[in-house]
Write a protein that binds this DNA or RNA. Structure first.
Lengths: 255, 255
DNA sequence: GGTGCTGCCTCACGTCACGTGAGGTGCAAG
DNA sequence: CTTGCACCTCACGTGACGTGAGGCAGCACC
């Protein structure tokens, strides 16, 4: 029926001290005490604790959580709605950060440098207008800096050359299929897409079909990647994306 | 070429004090100072700051971040890989939390109560074996508590009754289609699924097709929901899920 | 050439959400 | 009966900054 601090702490994955603290600041005052002064938490207290931990996980300060939970106009359902909203927003933000990391990895793999604006913009607090004239003299424009970047990315010159050679080979083969007029979902083309994916997985980072598709989208949407592919052969960026998508669809059907 | 504290702070969306702090603890010491003692941050410093903010966002303590970044055996690519790994892990965790919230919302909507274990298990630190005997006397088993829950969820008795009536009507209509032998993707059935979705959106929480599909999965995977549907008519849980999926596919094709 | 403003500096104490003992109590088992 | 365990209440420590206080550097304007 009612529970001790230790039980609640173990149950909720927090420490006893945390419960003491929440009691001290009035955020979660146990509904009862034993004659010996031991805290006793009821089921309603646990419900409240669950809400507290949820909002805490989402980064709310404890005082604010108290305000939210003590709001008499807020029923449990409205809390759930708000939590769901906050969660999806946070998930989207993290997905953008993950996409930024993927961009950075892919850029490194292909030897492209990102501008500093792009480096920070994933953190959200970034307003491009705020430093318009600052953006002019781009930090990454020194050849010396680019060289340092490149050296850091290169394990050894020979490794790097081998990677370039294989990548160029794949790109060239895909460009040939495009020139030959093959559709992007032709078996020969999706096979090349698969080889592209496996190549990345082996030498750079684990790349499943979903991530590979995101890369493909990037090739047409990010002008730096588009430029790289269009330089090999006009239309190759889109063709690569479509081939990657077709290969993913093929794999999904097979699996 | 090099930047002042104010510039960097504005750029990265942090305060000047934070940069001072990172300087104090040796996490990010600017490469240079002017004769007046003003901090000057180079491009390499900004790269490091970006890494710092990334790891900080992922919840690392500053001291640990310093260790990570000062590890001579860690090249930039390994950082990116680790960050991507951490991000996807965090995203998965938040997705599970969101799913738990969806379960809670749907449970409330359908008048089912979750056990306290289920309430806390999304926080991850939860080990079911750890309190096996504790699980026996489930907190939610008191009729009094369930009643309190139900009262809290109910805006007014009449509202609640109206909702029940409409929901029962939809469920009954779907059960009839199942009894009639209609396939789940029959227009009449997907129309009912769409009505179900809109009903939830109107009276409970915004429910797009994607979320609706997750709900459908829940109906067959979560025994409490399964039991609720099977009680209406055997096979209805799966039938609902398939109808919902078919309706979502139909909407995707149309859109 | 003073005056004021802005941006930077260095202490140094405040805060939030706890962590970490120190020292004492209640009670069930050996 | 004492040993052990879980609980209690101070009370100070900590991490990651926030928030002034008091002061210097350079530039604009009167």
């Amino acid at each position: 029926m009612s529970h001790s601090v230790g039980q609640v702490a173990g149950f909720a994955g927090i420490t006893v001290r945390t419960l003491h603290h929440y009691d001290e600041i009035g955020l979660l005052v146990p509904s009862a005490r034993t004659t010996a002064g031991h805290r006793r938490y009821t089921d309603a207290d646990l419900d409240r604790l669950q809400q507290i931990l949820f909002y805490r996980e989402l980064g709310f300060p404890l005082e604010e959580i108290a305000v939210l939970l003590d709001d008499p106009a807020a029923d449990p359902v409205s809390h759930l709605r708000r939590q769901h909203h906050l969660l999806t927003a946070r998930i989207d933000q993290l997905k953008e950060m993950a996409a930024a990391v993927e961009r950075a990895m892919e850029a490194r793999r292909m030897g492209i440098n990102l501008t500093p604006e792009e480096k920070f913009e994933v953190f959200g607090d970034f307003d491009p207008d705020e430093h318009a004239e600052e953006a002019e003299r781009r930090w990454g424009d020194s050849a010396q800096y680019r060289e340092a970047q490149r050296r850091a990315a290169t394990c050894s010159k020979e490794d790097w050359k081998a990677l370039r050679r294989e990548m160029d080979e794949i790109h060239g083969a895909v460009a040939d299929r495009l020139a030959a007029g093959d559709p992007p979902d032709a078996p020969a083309v999706t096979a090349l897409a698969e080889r592209h994916r496996l190549f990345i997985s082996r030498f750079s980072y684990e790349c499943d079909h979903q991530m590979h598709c995101r890369l493909g989208e990037m090739y047409v949407q990010d002008e730096r990647f588009t430029a790289t592919y269009e330089a090999i052969r006009p239309g190759l960026a889109r063709y690569m994306r479509d081939a990657i998508a077709a290969n993913a669809a093929r794999a999904a059907d097979a699996g």
